[in-house]
Computed example of a mutant assay.
Amino acid sequence: MNQMHSAPTVSGHNAVLHDAVRPQWSAEVISWLLGSPLLGQRLEVLDLGVGTGLGTRSIATLGHSVTAVDTDNDMLSVLRKVSEELSHGGVGLITAANGSAESIPLEDESVDAITCLQAWHWMDAERATFECDRVLRQDGMMAMGWHTWDRTSEWVNGLAAIIEPDGPPDDQTRSVPREFAGRGIFERKDFAFNYELSVDQLVKLASSWAFVAQRSDQNAVLAKVCRLGDQLESSDGLVRFPHITAAFRLQLPSKDLVG
């Protein structure tokens, strides 16, 4: 029989919690987002709205230099600390900078690629698009991605019934612009994966979601999530949370070929 867990009382979410429980970004997904660069090809990448840099670290581990931009200094402080502990392949390749997609702290045409993971729906699309277009080099890659729940899964729907009493939230992937500065159409690819975590981690993950943290009955909701996790826990002590990473990329043509 699986061990029963008790749901902790959690107040809000913070940078350390976010970093500990949110899913990582695989090398496969990141490589595709960057345009599947050749082995040994090193890119200058801008990562926007990075939070604690879960995607940033994957970019650096692949050997690319990356400027990580966010407005939250607490999130960036976690990234800076963790960056010091990266494997040798990613050491020294990350620069964390305070800024936003609407005001990017980089020079014109200074990066080969831009990634924006779990964040574009928070941006002012018109201003952010202008800024991204400004800092991208010719033939640069613009990429966005979201980890989404696999709602074909019965247990995901059971989780949704607990924490989404008013139905699912808006589809964040709809914020992807069909055209980028009038210069192209995004290509989409979905990557399925199971996010493996313990029951305690599942509860902490749920507590990190703003739509749970802001509820007046948060502790009761987390107790239900805990019971669901107990039911689904495998013999190895893990719950497998079905996800789909929705990935989008657009290679922009040379600016002198436009218009």
Rank of each mutant, 00 (worst) to 15 (best):
A68H: 06
N73F: 07
L86R: 00
L222A: 03
E28L: 06
L34W: 05
I59N: 04
P23G: 08
Q251V: 13
E196V: 15
I244D: 08
S65N: 12
G237F: 01
L76C: 09
I30E: 01
D256K: 01
L38Q: 14
W155G: 05
S58Y: 06
S110I: 07
Q118R: 02
T152E: 06
I163A: 10
G40L: 05
S6L: 14
T173K: 08
S207G: 12
C226I: 15
L76N: 07
A113D: 04
S175H: 12
L205S: 08
L228H: 00
G35V: 07
S100V: 06
R137G: 11
P242N: 11
R249K: 15
W146A: 04
L46P: 08
L93K: 05
V239C: 07
C116W: 03
V78K: 00
S175M: 07
R174S: 12
L250F: 12
V176W: 13
A160V: 14
T56P: 11
T152G: 01
D150A: 03
A97N: 07
A113M: 10
L54M: 03
T148S: 11
I244E: 06
V66R: 00
A96N: 08
V212L: 03
D190F: 14
G167D: 15
Q138D: 14
H88N: 10
Q218F: 00
D124P: 14
L252P: 00
V69I: 11
T56S: 02
V203W: 01
C226S: 13
G99P: 07
D170M: 12
W25Y: 15
M141S: 09
F186L: 06
V82G: 00
V135D: 06
C226M: 12
G53D: 10
L33M: 11
L117Y: 01
S11A: 12
N14S: 14
N73G: 07
R240D: 06
T9E: 15
D230Q: 05
I163H: 01
R80W: 04
S208N: 13
T245A: 14
A20L: 11
E196M: 10
E154I: 15
T129F: 07
G63C: 05
V111F: 12
L117M: 14
Q231W: 12
M4Y: 14
I114D: 05
K255D: 03
E44L: 04
A101E: 09
H13F: 14
N73D: 15
T9G: 06
S36Y: 03
W149R: 14
M141H: 04
C132K: 02
I114R: 02
V212M: 01
